[in-house]
């Protein structure tokens, strides 16, 4: 670092963690956080386009989409929602632990968060298997006795497309947390330097937010139809 203008008065950070092209640790932290937030904005548009398409068809075929929604397993769906919200809490507590520099708690909470994520995916798999047994899996095995077969199938296409994409994001999230856990075990983090934990937590909680909306549009609309 030949001509680095380092600002070492900014709160006793580790200069070795400041990459060469940043002037201060604070600048690096703010850049990384902002980068993740902008990425999440792109994710809003990514899933948002699917929500728009879903809305258009749902407005067009409210009956068929209600009928499709009635086939959802509300018990498993609600449990999964609770699990994801809990994992967001453990993730937020993990950030808290990293902020106070408690590495042991950080690691425990990261493992807990990942486990909750895995339980979510397992339950999701059980649901998919049930849909398969019910012959409600478009492109693989789809049967519907009523009149609006293709429109009910449309509901399931969106269901599998959006929840599948969400599950993919969960897998990526678990991978990211594994890397964070590895770095924590390697002793990379301290009370002064823990930005990657916070950045990963943003992603994890965002995936949770997406699920909250998926739950609302897929599971909750068929509840009163069954009665």
């Amino acid at each position: 670092m030949p001509d680095m203008v380092s600002n070492l008065s900014g709160g006793g950070h580790l200069p070795s963690r400041v990459r060469d092209h940043f002037r201060t640790a604070e600048q690096q932290r703010e850049s990384e956080m902002l980068g993740m937030w902008i990425f999440l904005a792109t994710e809003v548009m990514f899933f948002g386009a699917l929500f728009v398409a879903f809305t258009v068809y749902r407005t067009g075929y409210p009956q068929a989409f209600g009928a499709g929604s009635a086939d959802m397993n509300i018990v498993l769906g609600s449990i999964n929602t609770a699990i994801l919200i809990t994992s967001s809490l453990t993730m937020a507590l993990a950030v808290h632990a990293s902020e106070v520099g408690n590495q042991r708690w950080l690691q425990v909470l990261l493992v807990l968060t990942m486990l909750l994520g895995c339980v979510f995916l397992a339950i999701k798999g059980v649901e998919y298997y049930q849909h398969y047994l019910d012959h409600k899996m478009p492109a693989v095995w789809f049967e519907y006795s009523g009149a609006d077969g293709s429109k009910v199938q449309m509901f399931f296409v969106f269901y599998f497309f959006m929840t599948g994409l969400h599950a993919l994001h969960m897998l990526v999230g678990i991978g990211v947390l594994l890397v964070i856990l590895g770095r924590s075990l390697a002793g990379s983090f301290s009370a002064e330097y823990h930005t990657p934990v916070a950045v990963a937590a943003l992603y994890w909680s965002f995936v949770d937010i997406i699920w909250v909306f998926l739950f609302a549009i897929f599971y909750l609309q068929g509840l009163h139809v069954m009665r």
Partner: peptide, 8 residues
């Protein structure tokens, strides 16, 4: 709530 508090 998640964005405001969990995500700061």
């Amino acid at each position: 709530l998640i964005a405001g508090f969990f995500m700061h």
